[in-house]
Design a protein around this nucleic acid. Structure first.
Length: 443
DNA sequence: TCTGGGGTCCTAGGACCC
DNA sequence: TCTGGGGTCCTAGGACCC
């Protein structure tokens, strides 16, 4: 048996943790740049605020209903997530952390499955303050569906819940009822495109999908959807992956707070992202061979432009100086005047570990003036300094900084590419300056 | 006149997830 | 005015091999 732990309205729950005034009130959390709604409290859901809705479209609705709006604060959410996952790992052997707020874990060899899960949920609530739901089923796909049922308890009142946040659907007729009342697009692995195809073929709910001929599905839509069909029948296809595999790519990109026109502005944003990506890569102890830079105007812009370019090194590198040099060159190649850009980004990929680097017989042209010998050492030093004094204390310089200080024509742009984050709460657990202060009265 | 069979590897694009 | 970020996997098609 498999269990799926899912934090309830996770980002909203994190905000409420440090600001209890928000409990009971409608709250939403926004995506980066204060763009879209990505987390809603139950109260906000009841008002009819939809997932993914752009903020500017529903501003009136939010004010009229006195909805509290928060910018996202990922360092806090990540920290709280780690605490929850650690509790889980300390109590169960086989755990797969599936996302920031979800984890699968195995219940094999346990006698009181439901009881153990109730205990876990209580412990997490008590120790971290975050409410969670746990669905138990034979497969991941069914566990997902079970979790959905817990969150929609009010609709499923005819099922008997032994606990408010843990559920295993045991009776066959109950499961059939649940599958029949689960829209096909709500099934894990069925997105927009697949659900259109399925509905055209009269497959409207999870039960219909379960009854589909699996070889027909495989022929038409591939092996992944075939697995979904089997998993709905209780056939295990997706195992719990408890050793997490090495990353295959690292991407850092942001939409700008304001659209950018000038090359130098894009470059000064890109140098920040490249350093973030390279630093992430070092944390995984990896070397990359491939560097991709991409650039785009807004999707909603009439004058659309989107381009990317990739460079493959002869020998994998960890050296930030080389990665930046390549990135800079690639950006130059795809930048075009006369567009207003909304986003730039970097993707590092084709990774390998230090032990398995294939050395090159030929010198990389780009690499001529960068001493190969000290790359690893220098990178290590950067990490040591930044770990001690804070990320960004030591960083790569570029000649764009000169423009910044000389306040040339585009210096306004230079400072404006930073993300919009108007409703940001403090970094309560991840920044010394923001740690909540407690006053103690002396009696 | 007639032109095979069986592979691998790479890439781009599409679909999905949270 | 304003529409997120970061991933994975699969498939089809092209290029190549003997």
């Amino acid at each position: 048996m498999i269990a799926l732990l899912d934090c309830n309205n996770f980002y909203v729950s994190c905000e409420r943790l440090f600001n209890p005034k928000l409990v009971g009130k409608p709250v939403v959390v926004l995506s980066n740049n204060d763009g879209c709604i990505i987390s809603r409290s139950d109260e906000a859901k009841n008002i009819g605020i939809k997932m993914g809705e752009p903020l500017f479209k529903i501003k009136d609705k939010l004010t009229n209903n006195k909805v509290v709006v928060c910018s996202s604060n990922y360092s806090v959410y990540g920290d709280i997530s780690n605490r929850i996952m650690n509790i889980l790992k300390n109590n169960f052997d086989k755990v797969e952390i599936y996302s920031i707020d979800e984890a699968f874990f195995s219940l094999d060899k346990l006698n009181n499955k439901e009881e153990e899960c109730v205990d876990l949920a209580n412990k997490i609530l008590k120790w971290t303050g975050i409410p969670v739901s746990i669905g138990i089923a034979k497969t991941k796909t069914l566990a997902k569906i079970t979790n959905r049922v817990i969150k929609k308890k009010n609709i499923y009142s005819k099922l008997d819940f032994h606990s408010s946040n843990v559920l295993e659907i045991r009776r066959k007729e109950d499961l059939e009822y649940v599958l029949k009342t689960t829209d096909v697009e709500d099934v894990w692995g069925v997105g927009k495109k697949l659900s259109i195809f399925l509905k055209d073929n009269n497959v409207k709910n999870a039960f219909n999908l379960k009854e589909c001929n699996e070889s027909f599905i495989r022929k038409k839509k591939g092996v992944i959807l075939e697995r979904t069909v089997l998993e709905l029948r209780g056939v295990l296809c997706n195992q719990i992956e408890d050793v997490l595999p090495d990353k295959k790519s690292i991407c850092v990109s942001r939409s700008f707070g304001r659209k950018l026109r000038y090359y130098d502005s894009l470059r000064s944003a890109l140098i920040v992202y490249v350093q973030k990506a390279a630093s992430k890569m070092r944390m995984s102890n990896l070397f990359c061979r491939t560097i991709t830079i991409f650039l785009k105007t807004s999707r909603y812009e009439s004058n659309l432009y989107k381009n990317s370019k990739t460079y493959t090194l002869i020998e994998p590198t960890i050296d930030l100086r080389l990665i930046w040099k390549v990135s800079d060159k690639l950006l130059k190649e795809i930048y075009k005047e006369s567009f207003i850009y909304s986003k730039v980004g970097v993707i590092l990929s084709d990774f390998c570990k230090k032990e398995s680097i294939q050395m090159s017989l030929i010198d990389e042209k780009l690499n001529n003036d960068i001493s190969k010998k000290n790359g690893v050492k220098i990178m290590k030093l950067i990490d040591i300094i930044n770990n001690r004094f804070g990320y960004g204390k030591i960083k790569l310089s570029s000649d764009c900084d000169k423009n910044f200080f000389s306040k040339e024509k585009n210096s306004n742009e230079e400072i404006s590419w930073q993300m919009k984050s108007e409703y940001r709460s403090p970094c309560y657990t991840t920044s010394w300056d923001d740690i909540p202060k407690v006053k103690v009265k002396n009696e």
